[in-house]
Write a protein that binds this DNA or RNA. Structure first.
Lengths: 174, 174
DNA sequence: GAGTAGTTTTTCACCGGTGAGAAATACGGG
DNA sequence: CCCGTATTTCTCACCGGTGAAAAACTACTC
């Protein structure tokens, strides 16, 4: 018997699909097999990732910006536009992130001398120190989250997620 | 030569990993192969999913609630707690979602007669009609997003995401 | 070199989420 | 019954995101 109630029996998404199949047998709910699980996995990931970052007084949004600057290498400097593109965030969102991080002294804004529209963001020593400490922790935390996957499953999943990202990008185009 | 600049060359996550490898060769960034792609895929998914839903005057949050009620079957009624659990949202978040949907006449709150703490939420005819119309569109939209994946890739990805969700759940436990 | 189009970032008004704790109710044991 | 504990939902103060439009600037064209 497959029909479970609400609780913790099988997989939440499997139950969702069973319910839709019962209620709307005219529809094919199979996309949920992938995208519903994407959604739920992301929410779990987000919740668990933010905890240690928040313990250091940072949000995931702030962490994301500092990480982008750090991995860009010296002089740890990117424009607001580059940060928006790297994080898939709107330009308004980036402005907000920068306001907070600049207020906390983790980065500084510097107007470009040649093209005075563009704003460069540069890590301060405090920002560099913080992200260097947090990022190692962050990776360890992520490793814990993947502990139940075998190495082969991880590489397969990575490869399929890469294809998924491309598929989603394609769909966006038109 | 593998080092690409910023643009559209290979995969954004591959570039991120190359950068980290260059900047912090002491760390193993491999979790990003999976979780960075999870993150980006989710953001793309979210953006594209919200468009048609928003065109009907609804947010993804509202859509999520109506869908949970609809698939629960007649009488299309769940408690606030059940909705929170189904959507991985805090109780405060559910209250907010319900306020908006009730204000728009898409559901009604009904206090339980036996246990007056619990609030049942029931789809109104307007809510039922709206979600029945939108959900079919939504599935078609999701199918478009998966178009570049072969059937076999979809089932593999679904199965690996199920394992990932379980791995993330396990990690949450302690 | 003035006008126009295009770009980059910021502002504004809003939605949607959280954690902590309050409020209301239920329940079990003396 | 009454008390302490647990459960369920809501309130409050806040963070973080968006789209549209403004602001600041560049660059093209005539």
């Amino acid at each position: 018997m497959t029909g479970r109630v609400q609780g913790t029996g099988a997989d939440a998404v499997s139950r969702v699909i069973e319910e839709w199949h019962r209620e709307r047998p005219d529809l094919d709910p199979s996309p949920i097999e992938v995208l519903g699980r994407l959604h739920r996995s992301f929410l779990l990931y987000q919740t668990q990732t933010s905890r240690p970052v928040a313990a250091a007084g940072l949000s995931l949004a702030g962490f994301d910006v500092l990480a982008a600057l750090r991995r860009s290498g010296e002089p740890y400097r990117l424009t607001a536009g580059e940060l928006a593109a790297a994080s898939l965030v709107s330009s308004a969102g980036v402005t907000l992130r920068l306001d907070r991080l600049e207020g906390e002294g983790l980065l500084v804004r510097e107007r470009d001398a040649k093209d005075r529209r563009v704003v460069h963001c540069r890590l301060t020593p405090a920002g560099l120190h913080l992200i260097d400490r947090l990022f190692a922790e962050h990776l360890d935390n992520e490793r814990r989250m993947l502990a139940a996957l075998k190495p082969k499953e991880r590489t397969q999943l990575a490869s399929l997620l890469e294809k998924l990202e491309r598929s989603l990008s394609d769909a966006q185009e038109q």
